[in-house]
Design a protein around this nucleic acid. Structure first.
Lengths: 344, 344
DNA sequence: ATGCCGTTTGTTAGCGCTAACAATCTCTGT
DNA sequence: ACAGAGATTGTTAGCGCTAACAAACGGCAT
């Protein structure tokens, strides 16, 4: 109000104001701003000085309108409260920034096809140039595949069936490493605490576990199933503790492994002496579980980064090549929760 | 290419196209789109039909240019990989969406004044209408206070000295509850594993602990200090395990408590029989620690939501009232890691 | 000197939308 | 039947910027 009531109407300076102050045309100001060639150093300096003096800021909407480029990318995420999605988002944002883009996020509670489609549409309406979909559930994977998308789109998650570029973790491989390690340790077989049925990641890890067991000629026990949460791991652990033949459990993620560890502890089953446990993800806390958790490390940040690079390549490379599928290898991290099968 | 080479140039439909198809002026299309009054139902229907037929999408840049509103808000976050910031971000995003805004994030590695200032500038240049700063460190708190901000700004974090609207958690209160509970349990005094010195949250929790101790006439032992990570909690735990007079520890967050628990376990110090432990945050895993962690719950999502509401109020309420300071009360959650001081 | 070419600057048209106002149409009361 | 008040629609003028072209200004070879 103070400013409004004065005679000196305080509107934001525009390019023309800068031009007038510098004694040039607005186009020359634009040239300086965009680093166009053929501007005399002297002129450039005067323009720059005028910009500083007025504290001029280019209007991004006006620029976007005429260039048809918003410098904004969208991210559709699923529950960015979880460590995985949060880390990916972080990686995406960092990569985007260094590539000169802004990131607009929208995070979903449910990952059905309609929600994903809606979120992408919303972002597109807002003018993003491309979208990264963090799409871990099978429903969303197919949703992404079906997207009648008019924006370039990259998915990050697990899977290889979608017809969009995608970067994912070698879940089968990682699960195989974990399972194989347990077998090498002398366990007759390995039980599995799987994630929700409708998640690709869950399916792939289960498959990697099963295949490895079969390849080693081990019996394939029935799968226990959780929902990724420590709570569900605890409940599964209560059931597992009652099964006396169990000597090794591969958990589909670290949080469930934590719950499992807790249940086993309460049931008086020693880890790793009686039962070995391996997780998946390597969350920062895993090394401080009781006992420290042997797990499969995946680099979420890298995942996000690569997804973004793919998107930018598509955006700027022009030629939309065939959908690229990128896979990042996870790595087994040995700690104390898995040991030799002593007393069988 | 396929589309380019054909005679039917496939450019995105604009408002004029819709207008022509519906047999009205572009302004009427605009009216329908913006729900303006005085449009005949029949006309509206024709326009809507034309929009559907052409799959027309309004151009947000053009609208932003003329209305001077981008419908976008910015969030400056610190390491959105951590549970707290990630949850706040999530809360902010959800609240923003339901208020009709988009959220552009940028996350910082370091939280010094310059970085914060830069991030806010970047967002402002991109055209956001307001900014939420997740500002937990004292350096950033003062940075925010100093911001020569031309955008409405709300901080979320801890503190009350900044001259910007801010929503925070009652850290002193929560720490007092935790400490008081331990004293009530019969402990002669309570040790404290604090967070980094330069974080407001850390300072406030320490202060709450100290004040409560003093009020109860308990001796105030020297503070152990970590960096929020489980690793640092573990290291502090190693030191604490050697101190035989310790019977109760209040940790400034759950992750450090986890590390502490692990160290105590390794040192053969039973929790809670020998030593009681209380954390802060109530991360979803806390209930599955060994033993389940008694802790102070704070609702990060709510924090984010409230911050956003404050920002929107400022944006739409017009009258920029005096900086509001909002505090949300945390709540002590009783679990098994804290018990009576039996053997003193 | 003359013309040609590359450099440097300015001018003109929009980009696609909304705000403001003008024009028309449709009722009502008298 | 006719003025006046609303309801409904159209017309015009930008928002602040960049692209495309035009103009002016050198320098150089001829």
């Amino acid at each position: 109000m103070a400013t409004d009531s004065t005679g000196t109407e305080q509107r934001q300076p525009v390019m023309a104001d800068v031009a007038k102050l510098a004694g040039v045309s607005h186009q020359t100001v634009s040239r300086v701003l965009n680093g166009a060639p053929h501007v005399k150093p002297d002129t450039r300096d005067r323009v720059l000085a005028a910009i500083r003096e007025l504290d001029y800021r280019p209007n991004s909407a006006a620029r976007a309108l005429v260039t048809r480029r918003s410098q904004a990318l969208g991210v559709v995420s699923f529950d960015s409260t979880l460590y995985g999605p949060a880390s990916m988002l972080d990686g995406i944002e960092r990569a985007a920034r260094s590539a000169g883009y802004f990131v607009t996020v929208t995070s979903l509670r449910s990952l059905d096809g309609r929600s994903v489609q809606e979120a992408v549409d919303r972002l597109r309406d807002q003018g993003v140039e491309g979208v990264v979909v963090i799409a871990p559930q099978t429903s969303s994977v197919s949703a992404v595949a079906r997207l009648s998308s008019s924006v370039p789109l990259v998915a990050v998650g697990s899977g290889d069936q979608a017809r969009v570029p995608m970067v994912s973790v070698g879940n089968r491989y990682g699960a195989g490493e974990a399972t194989g390690h347990l077998i090498d340790l002398g366990h007759r077989t390995v039980h599995h605490l799987a994630g929700p049925v409708n998640w690709r990641e869950s399916q792939d890890r289960e498959e990697g576990w099963r295949l490895t067991l079969q390849a080693a000629g081990c019996p394939v026990p029935e799968v226990e199933r959780g929902d990724w949460s420590a709570r569900s791991g605890y409940q599964a652990g209560l059931r597992i503790a009652r099964l006396h033949e169990v000597t090794a459990v591969f958990c589909a993620n670290d949080h469930m492994a934590l719950g499992l560890l807790r249940a086993l502890h309460e049931a008086g089953r020693a880890v790793p002496d009686e039962i070995s446990v391996i997780g998946f993800d390597d969350i920062p806390e895993a090394a401080y579980f009781t006992p420290p958790l042997t797990t499969v490390r995946q680099d979420f940040g890298e995942l996000g980064r690569r997804a973004l690079e793919l998107l930018v390549a598509e955006l700027e490379g022009g030629a939309r090549s065939a959908p690229t599928q990128l896979e990042i290898s996870p790595e087994l991290v040995l700690r104390r929760s898995a040991g030799p099968a002593v007393r069988r």
